[in-house]
Every structure is written in structure tokens, then in C-alpha cells.
Computed example of a mutant assay.
Amino acid sequence: MSDPASTRAVAIARQGEVMRDFMARAVLFQEAVARSGGLNGSDLQAVGLLLSEGPATPGELASRLRLTAGGAITTMIDRLERAGYVTRTRDDADRRRVIVTAIPETVMARVGPVYEGVTARWNEYLDTLTDEQLDFANEFLARAAAFNSDEAEALHRSS
């Protein structure tokens, strides 16, 4: 009979390997998606954050991306605007402020089709899971995302 503690240690070590592989492949997939839409990975992440968290000033977007506000974010927004992924408008409440907004139709037209294949495969797999397994998977991935976000913020603060 195997030792439960050693079996658990092996399973935990394996989970670490699986998570590292998942994260690396997720980054590579996002880079491929970005290239398919004429973007780089950071540009795609910026558009994704604008879609999920809403419009932002350049400074707010830089903060979401953990970039220094200034030239880098301005250059990124210029690229995204030229490519038709975002618009810049003046804030009605404070005309000095610029608001950057993603254009969902452009995003869906250019990179949406790329996600359809992986979405179909995921949905097919998810249909095989029980409600309890889905709840666990959702909790697991939400915690992983939160931990990654917390650690990225800590790294950003320490640099």
C-alpha cells in the first residue's frame, strides 16, 4: 500500500508542473492570437482589460497593465487606435482627460474567430464534468488568477 503523504506530495508536485505548463502555453496562445489580429501580446492584453474592466484614462490603463504612465502607454494607445481597436475621446466631465475605449466589434471581428475553436473544445470538455467539478474548476482558476495578480502587484511595487 502506498504512503498517503508521499502520494499527496507527488500529486502536489505534479500540480505545480501542470500549472507551469498551462501558464506557459496560455501566454504562447495569447501571443499567437495577438499576432493573428495584427497586435503584440501587450496590446491584446490592453484591449482585453478595456473590454473586461471598462474604458480608462491612459494612466489608468497603464496602471492596469503595470506599465509606467507616459511614452510607453501613449505609443501603445496610438498603435491600437491606428489599428481600429480603440478610440480616444475627451471626458465630458473634465475635457483635459482622455478616455480610451475598446471597440468590441473590431476585437470580435479580428480575434474572435480565433477563440471559437478553443471555446468549442473547452465547452465540449466542460459538458463532461459534474456541477461540483465545474464549481471546483471555477474556484481553482479564480484563485490562481487572484494569486497571480497579487504576486504581479508585489513584484511591481518592489521594482
Rank of each mutant, 00 (worst) to 15 (best):
132 E>T: 10
142 A>R: 10
133 Q>I: 07
93 A>R: 00
135 D>N: 06
113 P>K: 08
116 E>T: 03
100 V>K: 08
52 S>D: 04
26 A>S: 11
24 A>T: 05
151 E>C: 07
4 P>I: 11
90 R>W: 01
105 E>N: 03
1 M>C: 10
45 Q>M: 09
159 S>T: 08
29 F>P: 11
96 R>S: 11
81 E>M: 08
54 G>R: 06
16 G>W: 02
100 V>P: 07
61 L>P: 14
4 P>Y: 13
134 L>Q: 11
150 D>N: 03
158 S>T: 11
49 L>C: 02
144 A>M: 03
122 W>G: 01
18 V>P: 07
49 L>R: 07
80 L>H: 15
100 V>A: 09
62 A>W: 01
127 D>Y: 03
78 D>K: 15
126 L>T: 03
132 E>A: 15
147 F>S: 01
157 R>S: 07
144 A>F: 00
126 L>P: 00
75 T>D: 07
33 V>Y: 02
77 I>P: 03
122 W>C: 03
19 M>V: 12
130 T>L: 06
43 D>P: 04
15 Q>C: 11
153 E>W: 13
46 A>P: 11
89 T>H: 08
72 A>D: 09
1 M>L: 11
57 T>C: 07
61 L>M: 13
126 L>Y: 06
114 V>H: 00
20 R>E: 09
25 R>P: 04
83 A>P: 06
26 A>M: 08
116 E>C: 00
151 E>V: 14
100 V>D: 09
130 T>I: 07
50 L>G: 09
66 R>T: 08
11 A>S: 12
34 A>R: 00
83 A>W: 05
101 T>M: 06
14 R>S: 12
127 D>S: 15
25 R>Q: 14
141 L>R: 04
